[in-house]
Amino acid sequence: MFPVTSEHRRGNNPLTGQASNECDPACAKQARGDKGGSVPDSPLRNGAHLILLLAALLAGIAIFLVVRQAVIPEGFGLYGHYRAGALKDNRMKPVSFAGREVCAGCHFDPDEALRAGKHGKISCETCHGPQSAHAADPASGVPAKPNAQGLCRRCHESDAAKPAHFPQVASVSHSGGAACNSCHEPHKPGFAKIAGERSGKK
């Protein structure tokens, strides 16, 4: 069937020292001796160890399949190739930013002031930081007042990369170091305080 002959495989080169040269007859004799008789040269008998090997291999695969079924995580593959529970895990993360609506539920005035002015679209927590803990339980602590100076400049300091339509000031020349909220109301930056207090700029 195959072009392999014992001549090709065995005993040609003394260096390979194939077993057939020397030990084969001995081994074979011993093996026969062990069995205490002659071993018929039947293919079935001669292939027994191969069948055993195959059986072991198949058994290994079978065990793997059974174990796999048992330890595969629950719900895996329900929606796709992933653990269905991972969706819920991702949903269960805590929320830090409560959202403007929530703040407005208690703090009417800042909300109204904000809506009336140019800062109307800005969410409270953009300036006040994440406050869900405070919103859930105000008694747990009072949020620190934001540092107006740094806050305002971060958004309003002149910067060539900012869109031209966005109101920007060079704080040094605009206020000369004075606190921004001494003239501007953070919640309503365009009105109130400014009127009359400053003659002009630019």
């Binding site: 014992s6 084969d24 026969r32 160890h49």
Partner: peptide
């Protein structure tokens, strides 16, 4: 040995063929 001591020429020839495959 995996429990098989059969090294008769027939068995070895079979091994050789299977090894080839």
């Amino acid at each position: 040995t995996l429990g098989s001591k059969n090294v008769s020429p027939g068995a070895l020839r079979l091994d050789d063929r299977v090894g080839y495959i």
